[in-house]
Amino acid sequence: MTIWSNFKRTARAGFIGFWRNGFVSLASVLIMTVTLFVFGSTIFINALLEASIHEVESRVDINVYFSSSAKEDDILALKTKVETLPEVALPVEYISKEDVLGNFKKHHENDEVILQSLDELDVNPFGAILNIRAKEVAQYEGIARFFADTQTDDGGTQIQKINYYNNKQAIDSLGRAVDGGRKIGASITIALALLSILITFNTIRLSTYIARDEIAVMRLVGASNGFIREPFIIAGAMYGALAGIIVLGGFYPVTYWIASSIGDFFGGLDLFAYYIEHFGEITLLLVISGIVLGSVSSFLAVRRYLRI
């Protein structure tokens, strides 16, 4: 017997077992569909959570206010230097003193007193601003320290104010909230994955329990443990693969409906576009998870009946 003909025989026996035990197979596939759906949902929940966290993070930045006498070249040199810091998310926004003045005037266009006061000044009283965003909320502290050190070095002649220290408490709270959000997301994912594995294992165990007499007969006619086990593993893998494909197909209308229902509530993430974009990875994850879950569960379930 070659390995190939042995594999063909095993695969055929697995398929026949799957097909002829139609009701048991259907029940197993349905349960695995539900568990893989839960499993797959965690992918989308995590994507939504990440998008929401990212959205909140993107609203935080450090504003560095320069004195009106600071030279533009010096500020731009500092900007270039800041952009090389690994924790800084690009681009760093530079608002020249002219733009700051223009923005101020636009903001107070209905306030004659302020506009007249500005006109009486010969020079632009505003300094330029650098707006910097960090890649992670926790990294703002380091960036603020970089500017604080620069401020100390130039004796406060260039950098007038760094607004991080005013918002430090709020940014720290946000950092904790983001960390908490990620930890809760990871915990939910792990808990749901464990639950899925447990439910799948019990379903397969039940379907194997039904076949326990059959396994006993196989042992009596001299079948080796491997020979008995392999078709069950194939059938288990087929339950998983089929359930994975059903879930994959099910997510098409579900993500489409959710995407059109929630709009851009969760950080503007289009769930349907996410599904289409990550179709390959989601397919692999669901089908492979299903195959692994089904076959490992079968392996463990049959082992119970193979003890001499």
């Binding site: 077992g17 002829r20 035990n21 006619v221 079948a223 080796s224």
Partner: peptide
């Protein structure tokens, strides 16, 4: 006998094993 196997398959199973 194995209920979901035909007569042929029940006998063949012993040979396959």
């Amino acid at each position: 006998l194995i209920p979901n196997k035909t007569v042929f398959e029940n006998v063949a199973f012993a040979m396959e094993a």
